[in-house]
Design a protein around this nucleic acid. Sequence first.
DNA 1: AAAAATACTGTACAATAAGTTCGGTATAGA
DNA 2: TCTATACCGAACTTATTGTACAGTATTTTT
Lengths: 183, 183
Amino acid sequence: MDRRQKKTREAIFNAFCELLSKKHYDQITVGQIIESADIGRATFYAHFETKDFLLKELCEELFCHVFDATVAGGEAHRHIFECDAPSSAFLHLLQHLQNNDRGILNLLVCENNELFLRYFKKSLKELINHQLPNICEKKPEELPDSFWVNHISATFVETVRWWIENGMREDPETLSDYFMTVI
Amino acid sequence: MDRRQKKTREAIFNAFCELLSKKHYDQITVGQIIESADIGRATFYAHFETKDFLLKELCEELFCHVFDATVAGGEAHRHIFECDAPSSAFLHLLQHLQNNDRGILNLLVCENNELFLRYFKKSLKELINHQLPNICEKKPEELPDSFWVNHISATFVETVRWWIENGMREDPETLSDYFMTVI
DNA sequence: AAAAATACTGTACAATAAGTTCGGTATAGA
DNA sequence: TCTATACCGAACTTATTGTACAGTATTTTT
């Protein structure tokens, strides 16, 4: 990829993240992104069709990174339900979040973050679906699969949301315990 | 209240609900609401400061109605956790939703309904907080109260969301069972 | 029934933002 | 060095928001 393109794309992402930490997605205009990234108007539209696509690509990049890092590194065959293992996939995710990779927390801390959480949940569902056989072992048999998967991922997301809303005072281990308890 | 005001307000709500069933909240313009409700531009702004306030008031009216009806009618002293009672508060809510009071389902069925669900969850949390003593009986003692309340209401909302997303094929009783199972 | 108050109409208007166009400049990669 | 292409920047169209105001209709009060 052209070095210029990479630089511009990065500048847009950085500007967007910084703005997201300050105000709600809806309140951010393309003009502000342009000004903050210090690029031309036409350049922005050469990279992203709309603001929505920008968010989409940013989220995909972020989650791709976090989830890949979680699955990799010898953890490939562990799964989210090894609740006794101190290094479960869930815990790994939380630790990644706590590291605040690329200001990811700015996105989570901001007041209205439905869109972000939607992408979060979507990625999570895909992860969980890959582990469906393991997960079904724990499932009460009267529940439909899709209900169960939805419940797991939604609870995961809600756990993280609660964590952030309350100032992230608990450490990832404690939070992981909370999650395992309600599941 | 002036008959004219009531009529106009109603016309706006109806137009808004109909539009919400067809497209995402963000895609709806004040102009479309005005056209659909067949009122003057200034009239809209005389009733609602912004589109956000319109949504807010609509949600409040809807939930106020549903929750009041749930709590009233001899059910006042029942609570959401009487899982064995066929007429638990949860079941009541589901039945209300199924009746599709005032096209409430149009709001839920539409593709992007985060805002609506946010208000839904907010109302729910208030309801649950009123029943906090009962709920804490069931709570695993190591969990913080707020985490538990959040988990209950989030699971409730997610249950309904899943229901709708899958075409509402289950009857309220079955869905109520699912909910009780995962809780 | 007359008068006063209030709600609605409809057009016009300013302000802001989105997204496009295009000629010119700068830079990457061969 | 040459060529392709990414960027610049300004102008422009279109769409939407929110306000203003003069005139009309309806409700409420006297």
